[in-house]
Amino acid sequence: MYDSVIDPTLGPAGDARGRTALAPRPGDLSGLRLGLLANTKRNAEEFVEEVAGLLESQHGVQKVLIRKKPSIVEPAPPEMLEELRAECDVVVVGVGDCGSCSASAVADGLQLEEAGIPAVVIVSDAFRVSADAMATLQGTEGYQYVTTPHPVANLSRQGVRDRATAAVPEIVALLRGPNVAPAS
């Protein structure tokens, strides 16, 4: 009956690239080279640095580099991705703490996985919706990430440390495995 009414969208988003398979998981983190990918939001760098410190002291990883993304909206540019791919065994991405950067953090996690690097994305729990929307847009509905309570931007360094401490067990679990994508 409504065939004559034109769809104002450009068709359904997503699924063009198909589901992103997660990179193979290492099982044990000891001795692995850790990369950090932060955005420019307040406390983002501090958060991933605190996570790195805990992963070093508790799990024997070695932090080798931290990169800050030039855009909060776009995923990391190709040269930054290549650098992470070349020099790191695992990467922690964070913190998705705004409308656009929560989505782009998930996009970063997925492009790292696609490049073969196990990655974990940290997102403020107030932005699950846009993080999930990006996973769905990229054909990977149900992509798992780690949430931390909102807000992050106004935390003290000690507050950031506490949050990182709380997040590390889940980060470790997602970095180690299981080596399967969740069912869609």
Binding site: S71, I72, V73, C98, G99, S100, C101, S130
Partner: peptide, 8 residues
């Protein structure tokens, strides 16, 4: 063209 439409 950035994140304006997605912004809080």
């Amino acid at each position: 063209k950035g994140g304006g439409w997605q912004s809080t």
